[in-house]
Protein backbone atom coordinates (compact mmCIF):
# COMPACT_ATOMS: atom_id res chain seq x y z
CA UNK A 1 0.00 0.00 0.00
CA UNK A 2 1.18 3.49 -0.79
CA UNK A 3 1.18 6.27 1.80
CA UNK A 4 1.60 9.99 1.29
CA UNK A 5 3.35 12.30 3.71
CA UNK A 6 4.62 15.86 4.07
CA UNK A 7 7.83 17.10 5.64
CA UNK A 8 9.66 20.35 6.30
CA UNK A 9 13.32 21.20 5.98
CA UNK A 10 14.31 24.64 7.19
CA UNK A 11 17.83 26.03 7.01
CA UNK A 12 20.25 28.90 7.19
CA UNK A 13 23.48 29.29 5.30
CA UNK A 14 26.31 31.84 5.27
CA UNK A 15 27.72 33.78 2.32
CA UNK A 16 31.50 33.75 1.83
CA UNK A 17 34.40 32.23 3.76
CA UNK A 18 34.41 31.51 7.50
CA UNK A 19 36.35 34.52 8.87
CA UNK A 20 39.16 34.11 6.30
CA UNK A 21 39.67 36.86 3.74
CA UNK A 22 38.04 36.02 0.43
CA UNK A 23 38.34 39.15 -1.65
CA UNK A 24 37.30 39.84 -5.21
CA UNK A 25 38.55 42.58 -7.49
CA UNK A 26 36.94 43.87 -10.66
CA UNK A 27 37.48 46.35 -13.47
CA UNK A 28 34.69 48.02 -15.43
CA UNK A 29 35.48 49.82 -18.68
CA UNK A 30 32.83 51.95 -20.37
CA UNK A 31 33.39 51.93 -24.12
CA UNK A 32 33.00 55.09 -26.20
CA UNK A 33 29.58 53.98 -27.50
CA UNK A 34 28.15 53.50 -24.01
CA UNK A 35 28.52 49.72 -23.88
CA UNK A 36 30.83 48.31 -21.24
CA UNK A 37 33.36 45.57 -20.63
CA UNK A 38 33.65 43.91 -17.23
CA UNK A 39 36.81 42.08 -16.17
CA UNK A 40 36.44 39.48 -13.42
CA UNK A 41 38.65 36.64 -12.27
CA UNK A 42 35.79 34.36 -11.33
CA UNK A 43 34.86 31.33 -13.41
CA UNK A 44 31.49 30.51 -14.94
CA UNK A 45 30.88 26.98 -13.71
CA UNK A 46 27.47 26.61 -15.28
CA UNK A 47 25.38 28.53 -12.76
CA UNK A 48 25.00 31.71 -14.81
CA UNK A 49 27.09 33.88 -12.50
CA UNK A 50 28.57 35.91 -15.34
CA UNK A 51 25.06 36.94 -16.37
CA UNK A 52 24.29 38.11 -12.83
CA UNK A 53 27.61 39.96 -12.57
CA UNK A 54 26.93 41.67 -15.89
CA UNK A 55 23.51 42.72 -14.60
CA UNK A 56 25.10 44.29 -11.51
CA UNK A 57 27.55 46.32 -13.63
CA UNK A 58 24.72 47.31 -15.98
CA UNK A 59 22.48 48.43 -13.15
CA UNK A 60 25.14 50.70 -11.69
CA UNK A 61 25.87 52.22 -15.11
CA UNK A 62 22.19 52.56 -16.03
CA UNK A 63 22.55 50.36 -19.11
CA UNK A 64 21.13 46.93 -20.02
CA UNK A 65 22.56 43.45 -19.42
CA UNK A 66 23.11 43.11 -23.17
CA UNK A 67 25.28 46.24 -23.11
CA UNK A 68 27.86 44.64 -20.80
CA UNK A 69 30.35 42.10 -22.10
CA UNK A 70 31.95 40.03 -19.35
CA UNK A 71 35.55 38.85 -19.70
CA UNK A 72 36.42 36.26 -17.07
CA UNK A 73 38.87 33.69 -15.82
CA UNK A 74 42.26 34.49 -17.30
CA UNK A 75 44.98 35.03 -14.71
CA UNK A 76 47.00 37.09 -17.21
CA UNK A 77 44.17 39.50 -17.92
CA UNK A 78 41.52 39.54 -15.22
CA UNK A 79 41.78 40.82 -11.63
CA UNK A 80 42.17 38.35 -8.77
CA UNK A 81 39.08 36.60 -7.47
CA UNK A 82 38.65 34.02 -4.74
CA UNK A 83 36.49 32.10 -7.19
CA UNK A 84 33.29 30.14 -7.57
CA UNK A 85 33.02 28.81 -4.02
CA UNK A 86 31.12 29.46 -0.78
CA UNK A 87 28.05 30.97 -2.51
CA UNK A 88 30.06 34.17 -2.63
CA UNK A 89 30.05 35.26 -6.26
CA UNK A 90 26.91 37.43 -6.35
CA UNK A 91 27.68 38.98 -2.98
CA UNK A 92 31.46 39.43 -2.88
CA UNK A 93 32.36 39.67 -6.56
CA UNK A 94 29.09 41.55 -7.10
CA UNK A 95 30.03 44.14 -4.48
CA UNK A 96 33.47 44.61 -6.09
CA UNK A 97 31.82 45.07 -9.48
CA UNK A 98 29.29 47.56 -8.17
CA UNK A 99 32.11 49.61 -6.64
CA UNK A 100 34.19 49.42 -9.83
CA UNK A 101 31.20 50.42 -11.96
CA UNK A 102 30.48 53.31 -9.61
CA UNK A 103 34.02 54.62 -10.10
CA UNK A 104 33.65 54.43 -13.88
CA UNK A 105 30.26 56.12 -13.58
CA UNK A 106 31.71 58.94 -11.51
CA UNK A 107 34.11 59.72 -14.37
CA UNK A 108 31.09 59.93 -16.67
CA UNK A 109 29.37 62.27 -14.20
CA UNK A 110 32.45 64.53 -14.03
CA UNK A 111 32.43 64.78 -17.82
CA UNK A 112 28.66 65.17 -18.16
CA UNK A 113 28.22 67.79 -15.44
CA UNK A 114 29.56 70.76 -17.43
CA UNK A 115 27.77 69.49 -20.55
CA UNK A 116 24.47 69.62 -18.64
CA UNK A 117 25.31 72.65 -16.50
CA UNK A 118 24.94 70.92 -13.13
CA UNK A 119 27.21 69.45 -10.45
CA UNK A 120 28.28 65.79 -10.79
CA UNK A 121 26.36 64.86 -7.61
CA UNK A 122 23.14 66.05 -9.25
CA UNK A 123 23.37 63.35 -11.92
CA UNK A 124 22.12 59.79 -12.19
CA UNK A 125 22.57 57.01 -14.77
CA UNK A 126 19.33 55.48 -16.05
CA UNK A 127 17.96 53.96 -19.25
CA UNK A 128 21.25 54.41 -21.11
CA UNK A 129 21.31 58.11 -20.24
CA UNK A 130 23.14 60.39 -17.86
CA UNK A 131 20.40 62.66 -16.56
CA UNK A 132 19.71 65.30 -13.95
CA UNK A 133 18.05 63.83 -10.87
CA UNK A 134 14.43 64.93 -10.73
CA UNK A 135 14.66 66.52 -14.17
CA UNK A 136 15.10 63.67 -16.68
CA UNK A 137 14.39 65.99 -19.61
CA UNK A 138 17.95 67.23 -19.16
CA UNK A 139 19.93 64.20 -20.25
CA UNK A 140 22.65 62.93 -22.54
CA UNK A 141 22.99 59.44 -24.03
CA UNK A 142 25.59 57.50 -22.05
CA UNK A 143 27.44 56.78 -25.29
CA UNK A 144 27.84 60.49 -26.02
CA UNK A 145 29.21 61.13 -22.54
CA UNK A 146 31.52 58.10 -22.68
CA UNK A 147 32.82 59.15 -26.09
CA UNK A 148 33.46 62.67 -24.82
CA UNK A 149 35.15 61.30 -21.71
CA UNK A 150 37.57 59.26 -23.78
CA UNK A 151 38.10 61.35 -26.89
CA UNK A 152 37.33 64.87 -25.62
CA UNK A 153 38.22 65.18 -21.96
CA UNK A 154 40.85 62.44 -22.20
CA UNK A 155 39.56 60.68 -19.09
CA UNK A 156 38.30 57.26 -20.22
CA UNK A 157 35.62 55.89 -17.90
CA UNK A 158 37.41 52.95 -16.28
CA UNK A 159 36.93 51.90 -12.68
CA UNK A 160 38.59 49.23 -10.54
CA UNK A 161 37.72 48.15 -7.02
CA UNK A 162 37.87 45.25 -4.62
CA UNK A 163 35.67 43.95 -1.82
CA UNK A 164 36.14 41.60 1.10
CA UNK A 165 33.29 40.76 3.52
CA UNK A 166 33.89 42.13 7.03
CA UNK A 167 34.25 39.44 9.72
CA UNK A 168 35.47 39.10 13.32
CA UNK A 169 37.70 36.15 14.27
CA UNK A 170 36.11 33.41 16.35
CA UNK A 171 37.34 32.62 19.86
CA UNK A 172 39.09 29.23 19.65
CA UNK A 173 37.50 28.02 22.92
CA UNK A 174 33.91 29.21 22.57
CA UNK A 175 33.60 29.93 18.84
CA UNK A 176 32.19 33.37 19.61
CA UNK A 177 32.72 35.90 16.82
CA UNK A 178 31.32 37.15 13.53
CA UNK A 179 32.44 34.53 11.03
CA UNK A 180 30.33 35.78 8.14
CA UNK A 181 29.00 39.07 6.89
CA UNK A 182 25.53 37.72 6.12
CA UNK A 183 23.36 34.60 5.85
CA UNK A 184 20.42 33.38 3.77
CA UNK A 185 17.39 31.42 4.94
CA UNK A 186 15.10 28.91 3.26
CA UNK A 187 12.38 26.34 3.74
CA UNK A 188 11.60 23.37 1.54
CA UNK A 189 8.49 21.24 2.02
CA UNK A 190 8.29 17.84 0.35
CA UNK A 191 5.42 15.52 -0.43
CA UNK A 192 6.40 11.88 -0.82
CA UNK A 193 4.70 8.60 -1.56
CA UNK A 194 6.07 5.55 0.24
CA UNK A 195 5.26 1.99 -0.83
CA UNK A 196 5.12 -0.04 2.39
CA UNK A 197 5.59 -3.31 0.48
CA UNK A 198 8.78 -2.32 -1.31
CA UNK A 199 10.09 0.62 0.72
CA UNK A 200 10.28 2.71 -2.41
CA UNK A 201 10.04 6.47 -1.87
CA UNK A 202 8.80 8.71 -4.66
CA UNK A 203 9.18 12.45 -4.16
CA UNK A 204 6.00 13.95 -5.60
CA UNK A 205 6.61 17.67 -5.21
CA UNK A 206 8.67 20.20 -3.33
CA UNK A 207 7.70 23.75 -2.42
CA UNK A 208 10.90 25.75 -2.00
CA UNK A 209 10.88 29.25 -0.50
CA UNK A 210 14.36 30.75 -0.67
CA UNK A 211 15.82 34.00 0.53
CA UNK A 212 18.65 35.39 -1.58
CA UNK A 213 18.21 39.05 -0.75
CA UNK A 214 17.34 40.85 -3.98
CA UNK A 215 17.05 38.34 -6.82
CA UNK A 216 19.32 39.95 -9.43
CA UNK A 217 18.00 37.40 -11.96
CA UNK A 218 14.94 35.45 -10.73
CA UNK A 219 15.22 32.94 -13.58
CA UNK A 220 18.73 31.94 -12.57
CA UNK A 221 17.68 31.73 -8.91
CA UNK A 222 14.97 29.28 -9.93
CA UNK A 223 17.53 27.29 -11.91
CA UNK A 224 19.80 27.07 -8.87
CA UNK A 225 16.92 25.89 -6.67
CA UNK A 226 15.95 23.17 -9.14
CA UNK A 227 19.56 22.00 -9.43
CA UNK A 228 20.10 22.03 -5.68
CA UNK A 229 16.97 19.99 -5.12
CA UNK A 230 18.15 17.36 -7.60
CA UNK A 231 21.30 16.94 -5.51
CA UNK A 232 19.19 16.84 -2.35
CA UNK A 233 17.00 14.08 -3.75
CA UNK A 234 20.11 12.05 -4.56
CA UNK A 235 21.50 12.56 -1.07
CA UNK A 236 18.20 11.64 0.54
CA UNK A 237 17.40 8.46 -1.34
CA UNK A 238 20.04 7.14 -3.72
CA UNK A 239 23.60 8.34 -3.87
CA UNK A 240 26.34 6.58 -1.89
CA UNK A 241 29.97 5.82 -2.60
CA UNK A 242 30.69 2.32 -1.33
CA UNK A 243 34.02 0.74 -0.36
CA UNK A 244 35.15 -2.86 0.03
CA UNK A 245 36.98 -3.95 3.18
CA UNK A 246 40.28 -3.02 1.54
CA UNK A 247 39.24 0.60 1.07
CA UNK A 248 38.62 0.34 -2.67
CA UNK A 249 35.48 1.80 -4.18
CA UNK A 250 33.04 -0.76 -5.50
CA UNK A 251 30.71 1.53 -7.45
CA UNK A 252 32.86 4.19 -9.16
CA UNK A 253 30.64 4.44 -12.21
CA UNK A 254 27.22 5.73 -13.19
CA UNK A 255 25.78 2.22 -13.57
CA UNK A 256 26.14 1.37 -9.90
CA UNK A 257 26.28 4.81 -8.31
CA UNK A 258 22.63 5.72 -8.52
CA UNK A 259 21.73 9.38 -8.87
CA UNK A 260 18.49 11.11 -9.80
CA UNK A 261 17.60 11.50 -13.44
CA UNK A 262 14.93 13.80 -14.84
CA UNK A 263 12.40 11.03 -14.24
CA UNK A 264 13.14 11.06 -10.50
CA UNK A 265 12.64 14.79 -10.18
CA UNK A 266 9.61 16.03 -8.28
CA UNK A 267 7.43 18.90 -9.34
CA UNK A 268 9.10 22.01 -7.91
CA UNK A 269 7.47 25.29 -6.95
CA UNK A 270 10.03 28.01 -6.31
CA UNK A 271 9.21 31.11 -4.30
CA UNK A 272 11.76 33.84 -3.79
CA UNK A 273 11.16 35.35 -0.37
CA UNK A 274 11.22 39.11 -0.63
CA UNK A 275 14.24 40.54 1.15
CA UNK A 276 16.92 43.20 0.89
CA UNK A 277 20.34 43.02 2.50
CA UNK A 278 21.87 46.49 2.81
CA UNK A 279 25.40 45.04 2.63
CA UNK A 280 24.89 43.27 -0.70
CA UNK A 281 24.99 44.62 -4.26
CA UNK A 282 21.51 46.12 -4.76
CA UNK A 283 20.42 44.11 -1.72
CA UNK A 284 21.54 40.71 -3.06
CA UNK A 285 23.07 37.90 -1.01
CA UNK A 286 23.48 34.51 -2.72
CA UNK A 287 21.72 31.27 -3.49
CA UNK A 288 24.06 28.61 -4.93
CA UNK A 289 24.77 26.16 -2.14
CA UNK A 290 21.73 26.78 0.12
CA UNK A 291 19.44 25.20 -2.45
CA UNK A 292 20.93 21.75 -1.76
CA UNK A 293 20.77 21.99 2.04
CA UNK A 294 17.18 21.42 3.19
CA UNK A 295 15.97 18.89 0.61
CA UNK A 296 17.03 15.62 2.22
CA UNK A 297 15.68 16.75 5.60
CA UNK A 298 12.30 17.62 4.06
CA UNK A 299 12.10 14.28 2.23
CA UNK A 300 13.01 12.18 5.25
CA UNK A 301 10.55 14.06 7.44
CA UNK A 302 7.88 13.39 4.80
CA UNK A 303 8.76 9.68 4.89
CA UNK A 304 8.34 9.82 8.67
CA UNK A 305 4.96 11.48 8.24
CA UNK A 306 3.90 8.92 5.62
CA UNK A 307 4.82 5.65 7.32
CA UNK A 308 5.95 6.65 10.80
CA UNK A 309 9.52 5.44 10.49
CA UNK A 310 12.66 7.45 11.05
CA UNK A 311 15.63 6.60 8.84
CA UNK A 312 18.56 8.23 10.62
CA UNK A 313 21.31 7.20 8.20
CA UNK A 314 21.33 8.42 4.62
CA UNK A 315 20.65 7.48 1.92
CA UNK A 316 17.17 6.16 2.72
CA UNK A 317 17.26 3.42 0.10
CA UNK A 318 14.20 1.23 -0.42
CA UNK A 319 15.95 -1.53 1.54
CA UNK A 320 16.45 0.72 4.57
CA UNK A 321 12.93 2.13 4.47
CA UNK A 322 11.42 -1.34 4.12
CA UNK A 323 13.55 -2.68 6.99
CA UNK A 324 12.39 0.20 9.17
CA UNK A 325 8.74 -0.43 8.26
CA UNK A 326 9.11 -4.13 9.08
CA UNK A 327 10.84 -3.36 12.38
CA UNK A 328 8.00 -1.04 13.30
CA UNK A 329 5.39 -3.65 12.39
CA UNK A 330 7.17 -6.28 14.47
CA UNK A 331 7.34 -3.93 17.43
CA UNK A 332 3.68 -3.03 17.09
CA UNK A 333 1.98 -6.09 15.53
CA UNK A 334 -1.57 -4.87 16.11
CA UNK A 335 -1.22 -2.14 13.54
CA UNK A 336 -1.60 -3.61 10.08
CA UNK A 337 -0.10 -0.72 8.19
CA UNK A 338 2.37 1.76 9.46
CA UNK A 339 1.29 5.21 10.65
Amino acid sequence: MKHRGKGIGCMWYPIGFTVAANPSAATVKVNEDGTATLLTGTVETGQGSLTVLGQIAAEELGISTEDVHVVSADTDATPMDTGAIASRTTYVTGNAIQLAAERAKNILFEVAAPMLGVRPDQLEARDRKIQVKGYPQSALPVGEVANHAQNGAGTPAIGSASYNPPTVAMDPETGQGKPFSTYVYATQIAEVEVDDETGEVQVIRIAAAHDCGTAINPMLVEGQVQGGISMGVGMALEEEMLFDDQGRQINPNLTNYIMPTSLDMPHIDVDIVENFDPTGPFGAKGVGEPTAVATSAAILNAVYDAVGVRVPNLPATSEKVLAAIKAKRNADPKRVSAS
Binding site: E44, G48, L50, T51, G54, Q55, I56, A58, E59, G62, I63, S64, T65, E66, V68, H69, V70, R126, D127, R128, T214, A215, I216, N217, P218, M219, L220, F282
Partner: peptide, 17 residues
Protein backbone atom coordinates in the same frame (compact mmCIF):
# COMPACT_ATOMS: atom_id res chain seq x y z
CA UNK B 1 14.29 40.87 -24.61
CA UNK B 2 14.84 40.95 -20.86
CA UNK B 3 18.57 41.28 -21.34
CA UNK B 4 18.07 44.41 -23.45
CA UNK B 5 15.90 46.18 -20.89
CA UNK B 6 16.73 48.67 -18.15
CA UNK B 7 16.92 48.61 -15.21
CA UNK B 8 19.03 45.45 -15.43
CA UNK B 9 18.57 44.15 -11.89
CA UNK B 10 15.52 41.94 -11.48
CA UNK B 11 15.33 41.04 -15.18
CA UNK B 12 15.01 37.40 -16.20
CA UNK B 13 17.94 38.00 -18.53
CA UNK B 14 19.06 35.05 -20.62
CA UNK B 15 22.67 33.99 -20.50
CA UNK B 16 25.07 35.35 -23.13
CA UNK B 17 26.44 31.82 -23.57
Amino acid sequence: EARQQTPAVGQRATRPD
